[in-house]
Design a binder for these strands. Structure first.
Length: 423
RNA sequence: GUGAUUGUAGCUCAGUUGGUUAGAGCGCUCGACUGUGACUCGAGAGGCCGGGGGUUCAAGUCCCCUCAGUCACCCCA
């Protein structure tokens, strides 16, 4: 509080013990992606601004008002990555990865959007996500969704809901857009201010409006299913069947339309009731046109992004914690001579074992040392005082069962072996 | 960008209609216990009351500005 420099608005420091939860989640995400055959891809944290303008869409909110854009010393316009899909496609194109057929990637890392922070919304957020390139088959949609669902379910999250929709493709989506324009335009003046803006930009978004002024017109609006082309219809049917066969529960929700321009056909969201106004923890869908629009070969693709902050918020709200188990050894030295001798032993032990070895260097009473052991959640204590030193012994205490035994004060290897016997 | 709301100890918060040296719980340090921990008891450390300006004999308290947090709108992870 006395410090005058703060973390920038909308960013946060991740401190212990939270940092441990983060790395555990990241490890789980990597593991699940690996099980599905996805390989990690890492891209720069900033890119040429043009990539996002072309990839995400000029009229999206991200490009219009949320990008962290700066001019570098070479007078190039650069932008901090606001989303991962465009950079992943750019990298794959740049390195000709599509020449080898279908590819599956996952990513994990920060994104940046200039917004007013609120619950579940930050200027630097972190996403895990996957992109599956090269399959137009509906099984690819189902696989990507299963992967996200697997991560959610494996954490014991029970209140998650999978919302599924289709928004058509290059053949039928323009027809729907025209139909919506024709429906709303006569009532333009009566629509909410936001929806008036949305009309030309993305009329599908009006359907998502919460404004009472729009409700009547939304109720009578044409539905996408009335103009959906047969191939899109068939694809959507097949995705649903694939999900059923994979035992993934979903609800159809025509309001899910997604904010990015590149989506085609399947779109989906996973929501949780505990997240507040930002109920979406995971969003994604198919984007068959993006690769070619960025100058690549016609390549169907489907993927999702999942917000790690929001995922952890769900775990918090649902009271899901990985229970802390005691592990490792607290080395306790009483007096300077013992400390010197014990430090040598600790150094040896750290080369012998993968379990944590803690040591406090303070001049404390044994009682204070044992409290520190509790704080570290150590399973064992190794106690060395003048008494033991004189007899060339050391006390090994099991902090859980409260039993203890005396060992000869040997090498780190011997002490580790003695601890191992108790495990 | 717009709106609402909150800033007091490391954390969670009290603080009367403005009235002397600003409080509690938890945590921390030390002790009760010459060397044995989740309990108990005692003591101690720790505050420009977010920052700046104003009103007043007197401001943590009232007014203005500013910064920051939180939540909501827009939109999204």
């Amino acid at each position: 509080m006395a410090s005058t420099v703060h973390a920038p608005r909308g960013t946060q420091d991740i401190l212990p013990p939270d940092s441990a939860r983060w790395s555990a989640l990241e490890a789980r995400a990597r593991e699940v992606a690996g099980r599905f055959g996805y390989e990690e891809i890492r891209t720069p944290m900033f890119e040429a601004t043009e990539l996002f303008v072309r990839g995400v869409g000029e009229t999206t909110d991200i490009v219009e008002k949320e990008m962290y854009t700066f001019t570098d010393k070479g007078d190039r316009s650069m932008t901090l990555r606001p989303e991962w899909t465009a950079p992943v496609v750019r990298a794959a194109l740049e390195h000709k990865l599509f020449a080898q057929g279908a590819r599956r990637f996952f990513y994990i890392g920060p994104i940046f959007r200039y917004e007013r922070p609120q619950k579940g919304r930050y200027r630097q957020a972190h996403q895990f996500g996957v992109e599956c390139f090269g399959y137009e088959q509906p099984q690819a949609d189902a696989e990507v969704i299963s992967l996200a669902w697997d991560l959610v379910r494996s954490h014991g999250i029970t209140d998650a809901v999978l919302h599924l929709n289709t928004i058509g493709d290059a053949a039928c989506r323009p027809l729907y857009r025209d139909a919506l324009l024709a429906h709303f335009r006569p009532h333009l003046a009566s629509l909410s201010e936001d929806s008036q803006r949305r009309l030309e930009r993305n009329p599908m978004r009006i359907l998502d409006s919460k404004d009472a002024a729009d409700a009547a017109y939304i109720a009578t609006a044409p539905t996408l299913s009335s103009v959906l082309c047969q191939p899109c219809r068939d694809h959507f049917e097949a995705v649903q069947n694939a999900l059923r066969s994979a035992n993934i529960p979903f609800v159809l929700n025509e309001k899910v339309v997604r904010g990015l321009d590149y989506y085609t056909r399947t779109v989906f969201e996973i929501t949780s009731s505990v997240l507040g106004a930002q109920s979406t923890v995971c969003g994604g869908g198919r984007y068959d046109e993006l690769v070619s629009s960025l100058g690549g070969p016609a390549t169907p693709a489907v993927g999702f992004g999942l917000g790690l902050e929001r995922f952890l918020m769900i775990l918090d709200a649902l009271g899901i914690h990985s229970e802390t188990t005691r592990s490792g050894v607290q080395a306790i030295a009483l007096g300077a001579d013992a400390r010197e001798r014990l430090f040598t032993l600790v150094a040896q032990m750290r080369q012998e074992t993968s379990m944590p070895v803690f040591m406090d260097f303070g001049d404390r009473k044994i009682l204070a040392h044992l409290k520190i052991a509790d704080r570290n959640a150590a399973r064992y204590a190794l106690i060395l005082g003048s008494e033991e030193l004189a007899k060339n012994e050391i006390v090994l205490r099991d902090l859980q069962t409260r039993s203890e035994r005396r060992l000869p004060l040997g090498s780190g290897k011997e002490v580790c072996a003695a601890v191992g016997e108790l495990e």
